[in-house]
Simulated assay, not measured.
Amino acid sequence: MNRITVLDDYQGVVARLDSVRVLDGLAVELDVLTRRISDENELLRVLRDTDTLVLIRERTRISSRLIAALPRLRLIVQTGRLSDCIDLAACARHGVAVRDGSGNPIAPAELTWALILAASRRLVGYAGQLARGRWQRSTPELADEQLGRALCGRTLGIWGYGRIGRRVAAVGDAFGMRVVAHGREQSQQAAEADGVAYLADRRDFLAQVDVLSLHLRLCAETRHLIRRDDLAAMRPDALLVNTSRAELLAPRALLDALGDGRPGAAAIDVFECEPDGVGDYLDHPCILCTPHLGFVEQDTYEAYFREAFTHVRDFIRDAGGGSAI
Rank of each mutant, 00 (worst) to 15 (best):
G279D: 13
R93F: 02
N41R: 15
R178I: 00
D18C: 07
R99N: 09
Y161E: 01
P263A: 02
D39C: 06
D39N: 15
A250E: 15
T243L: 10
G264M: 09
R203E: 15
I226K: 07
M1A: 13
S138G: 11
L212K: 00
L255D: 02
V278G: 09
V270T: 05
G277F: 02
A257I: 06
G165T: 06
E307W: 07
S38K: 11
P71D: 06
M1I: 09
E302Q: 14
R306E: 14
D314Q: 15
G322M: 08
N242W: 00
F295L: 12
H292Y: 14
I62E: 13
L156C: 12
I67N: 05
G294D: 04
L214F: 11
L44C: 00
L249F: 11
D314M: 04
G157K: 04
L123G: 02
G128F: 01
R81N: 06
T243G: 07
E145P: 01
D24L: 03
V20G: 04
V20E: 05
A92W: 07
S244K: 08
P71C: 01
A191G: 01
R81Y: 00
P108K: 01
L239M: 08
P105N: 09
G160D: 08
I325R: 14
L248G: 10
F271M: 01
Q208R: 13
L282W: 03
E145L: 07
I158V: 14
V32L: 08
S83N: 12
S64F: 01
W135M: 08
T79N: 13
I4H: 09
Q188L: 05
H94N: 14
V98L: 03
R121F: 04
